[in-house]
């Protein structure tokens, strides 16, 4: 490709980023959501440096006894577990796991969902039939037995948790994007592109994709939120990765400890984090619901 294309690409990327920043900032709720997600992201990136203690190190108080089941205080901002672990440190490190799982499975599921939706919707006919029956099969697959079998076969590992989440989540985005693709492919500018000599792949990725992008981003945000919830449920039921710590995993340990009725802080902290992050993601996605169409944006 000649350099003109590179130049155009860079300019396009900056323009696109600016555009999305404007979209999110136009809506007050989305703006709040965006900043909350950003804070969580920063915490996740710097987690090892931000956490005051090791997540699984017993803490002792000034008198030398184990700081077991302490409620929130200046020393332990969100309290401790029955074994004296610092919940604040656990929470910070768990943010990292949760966000990685959310982002990775959200990203992979939207990539799979988008491609399957675009291809099925654009080509139609047999290809559509096969791909859509495949998603129907996945709709019939219950999540929990599926992840239990995966973990029984391969052990409690992060990769399999992500794999299980992705397999469950992409189907909805595929269906929605297929529907939108079918609507767009019937518009005259697609016929125009064909008449100009564009190949099928060029039409799909250059002409249709930008037009499903708002929907795609909406579902990307949804998928991340759903991944986080799904991971939390899986971890809570003991099917998470045992070697890393996640918000769901913290709740699982609370359940194992049998201190649910006593340690309200142990329950409140991860729950609040899950709710706040998921809600913020949904807020961000709301901005994209309003921009299905550039004509609706300010001129």
């Amino acid at each position: 490709m000649p350099e003109g294309f590179e130049r155009g690409l860079l300019a396009r990327i900056t323009r696109t980023v600016g555009e999305h920043y404007r979209i999110i900032h136009a809506n007050p709720l989305s703006r709040i959501g965006f900043w909350v997600v950003s804070v969580f992201t920063i915490v996740a990136i710097f987690a090892p440096w931000l956490a005051p203690h090791e997540p699984w190190a017993m803490q002792y108080d000034s008198e030398g006894s184990i700081a077991s089941l302490r409620p929130p205080s200046l020393e332990f901002p969100v309290g401790t577990t029955h074994l004296g672990y610092d919940l604040f440190s656990q929470l910070i490190l768990a943010t990292r796991t949760t966000l990685i799982i959310g982002a990775v499975s959200g990203f992979i599921s939207i990539v799979i969902g988008a491609n399957i939706g675009l291809v099925a919707g654009y080509y139609g006919g047999k290809i559509d039939e096969i791909l859509m029956r495949l998603t129907d099969v996945l709709y019939g697959m219950p999540f929990l037995p599926f992840i239990i079998i995966l973990i029984a076969l391969f052990g409690r590992k992060l990769e399999f948790v992500i794999l299980a989440i992705v397999l469950i989540i992409w189907r909805t985005s595929a269906r929605v994007i297929r529907a939108q693709t079918i609507a767009i492919k019937q518009r005259q500018f697609i016929t125009a592109a064909k008449a100009r000599g564009c190949s099928n792949l060029r039409i799909i990725y250059r002409h249709i994709l930008p037009n499903v992008l708002p929907l795609l981003l909406l579902y990307a945000a949804f998928n991340i939120a759903w991944s986080i919830i799904t991971e939390a449920s899986a971890s809570f039921l003991g099917f998470g990765d045992g070697t890393t710590i996640s918000w769901g995993g913290m709740l699982y340990e609370l359940w194992l400890s049998g201190k649910t009725r006593v340690a309200w802080w142990w329950f409140a902290a991860p729950s609040l984090c899950i709710i706040t992050l998921v809600t913020s993601l949904v807020f961000v996605s709301r901005a994209y619901e309003e921009v299905a169409n550039p004509r609706l944006r300010k001129r």
Binding site: F189, L213, P294
Partner: peptide, 8 residues
């Protein structure tokens, strides 16, 4: 109004 790609 229909034959031009709105995102181009």
């Amino acid at each position: 109004y229909e034959s031009l790609n709105p995102r181009f």
